[in-house]
Design a protein around this nucleic acid. Structure first.
Lengths: 117, 117
DNA sequence: CTTCATTCTATAGACACTCTACACAATGAT
DNA sequence: ATCATTGTGTAGAGTGTCTATAGAATGAAG
């Protein structure tokens, strides 16, 4: 029998910003919702810890990729809604491209060639 | 005209071990050769700095995934040849699977769905 | 009305890894 | 001798995720 696939995998450093920005492309959202969306869409493979999430959001805001306003969530709690800025969209495109390139490079190295010892 | 593709991309933290182990699947090699092989196979996209390479090799050796012997390189210089150990092979399989899983998860989140704002 | 679970934001500190920059040794060529 | 090349190595900075902890605000239960 095959080993069961991992139910969770750690984030690689530098990928969280991309995930958050990509999620905000669907529209404004608060931190909690962003984390849950990423977890759901990734089939529970990615789980964003709050200790990573909020620093990341503050980072992105400080750099101007996103901005925030306090509002009320659907559940009636106060929540900070984040939305992509125009520079943020450009940054997302660039980050996405960097990811694709890196993933392709990894694929090139990992690819079996039949020459292995 | 399209923007030219990046000629180099930084390593994501945690991926170097996998690249090194994968390279050693071709057979024993010294540090310098490992770095050059990765760079070549990745079409120059990945460039391994010596300040990353040697700590990584020492790490892998300390954990028993690889072992080393001093020999002479083809160019006649002294060089430390590394080779995969048996546990190292198992570790490579596991690390590779973790990478595939992570890359798949990233793909799921990044994938365009047509619902974006 | 007071307890409790839930939702949501936040920070501190530990930890791990890659990077830049620098240093050094040994060989072969000129 | 001098020099470029090959090859190994370390120090320190920087970055970003993790665990652990805290607390505010709301609605529900008793």
């Amino acid at each position: 029998m095959k080993p069961s696939p991992p139910s969770r995998v750690d984030l690689l450093q530098g990928t969280l910003d991309l995930l958050v920005l990509r999620t905000l492309l669907f529209g404004p959202a608060h931190g909690h919702a962003i984390a849950k969306h990423i977890q759901a869409v990734s089939e529970e493979l990615l789980q964003i810890e709050t200790g990573s999430l909020y620093p990341a959001l503050h980072r992105l805001e400080a750099q101007g990729w996103i901005d925030a306003t306090w509002e009320k969530s659907e559940k009636g709690k106060r929540a900070k809604y984040y939305r992509l800025t125009s520079p943020g969209r450009k940054h997302l495109v660039a980050e996405r491209m960097k990811w694709e390139t890196f993933a392709r490079a990894m694929g090139l190295v990992l690819k079996p060639t039949g020459e292995e010892a």
